[in-house]
Structure formats: C-alpha cells, structure tokens
Amino acid sequence: MAVKTATVVDPFDAPRARHAAGVFGMWLFLITLGVLFVATILGYLVVRLNPDPAEPFRPLDAPGLPHLLLLSTGALMASSAAMHGTVRAIRQGLQRRAARLAGLTLALAIGFLSLQAWAWLDLWRAELRIEDSLYAWTFYVLTGLHAAHVIGGLVPLVVVWWRARSGRYSPEHPEGAVYCAMYWHFLDAVWLVLYATLWLGSLNAAA
C-alpha cells in the first residue's frame, strides 16, 4: 500500500482546533470542580440525615438561614446573565457593549460577595458560632467554599473586563471571555443547588 503522507494541517497549529481543545479542557475542569462540590454536598447530606436523637440538626436556639441570601442569589444570577451578554456582544462585534456588560458582571459579582459577607455577619451577631454545631459548621464551610471559588473567579473576570475595555476580543477570537463565562455559569448553577440544599437542611422536622 502506498505511503500515506499528511496534507491536512496539524491540529496543534490550527486556531480552531486549539479553541475546541480549550473549551473541552474547560469542561473537564468544571467536571472536576463539579465532583468536588457534589462530594461536599453528599457529605453534608450524610451528616444531615444521620438520625441523632439528642437534638435536632439545627439547634432550637439557632437562627434559620438569613433572607439576605435570596438577594445575593439574585445578584449572582444577574451577574451570570450579564456575563452571557458579554460573550454575545463580543461575538456580535459590539465591543463597547461587551466592556459595559463585563463591568456589570464584575460589579454584580462583588455585590454577591458583599451580600454573602453580610449574611455571615448577621448570623455571627445572632451568636451562631462555627464551633457550636454541625448546622453552623456546614453553613459557614459550604458557603465559604463557594465564595472562595467566586473570589478566585474575580481574577479572570477582571482580566476579561480589562481586555474587553481595550478591545482585545473580536468575533473571531472570543476565547478568554468564553472560558470565563463557562466558569461563571458553573458557579451560578452550583450556588442554586447549594442554597436549595442548605435551605432544606435548615428546616427541622416538626418537633
């Protein structure tokens, strides 16, 4: 049989193949983080559903989840929507709109973190200490874990905002913003699951 010689471009040198590899890599990264959060939530469920006759999971004198969390949830979802808009604007070549929306994403993200901190402070003032009960411990640790990932996400978000402002993205090259948006939507989804879990877990069976 004749010797086969390659005439097709090596995917390593093709920008589209590289971008596809980047998106795929990002998916793997999100799956990894997803496993991390799923494990955490499963751990929470195990201790939450542990039948402990001595006292309810949420001690009777402990406050419920602060209503502020509803507001912060709204901020994070709005931030996710703004990020979606940023990528759309970049794909349409609307650079100034993209920069504005990226700035809005950033502002809403900082808003989310501030509201989370405020919620923590509220509980702290209500004398809910992390070492008091597993109810307090899991609340602080799980929301803290999520907040740490949001804080980590601020760095690429600032970069995207900065690059959008200086017009470094184009419809052909939206890469960085696309990767950042994937991460951002992921954090949004994780928060919704986490919040629902914590809220259900904070309800004590009619005692």
Partner: peptide, 26 residues
Amino acid sequence: PVLAITLMLVVIERTINIGIFDPSMG
C-alpha cells in the same frame, strides 16, 4: 477532587475541633 475536599474538611476540623467527621457532634 474528592480527596482534595476531604483533606480540606480534615484541616478545618483539626483547626476548630469540630467537623462532619466528628461523631460527638453528629
């Protein structure tokens, strides 16, 4: 990632003496 989060939970438990692996608190 499961190992990563487990080790972090142990670190927190060791630091503040309570955690989800501690039977005395459920």
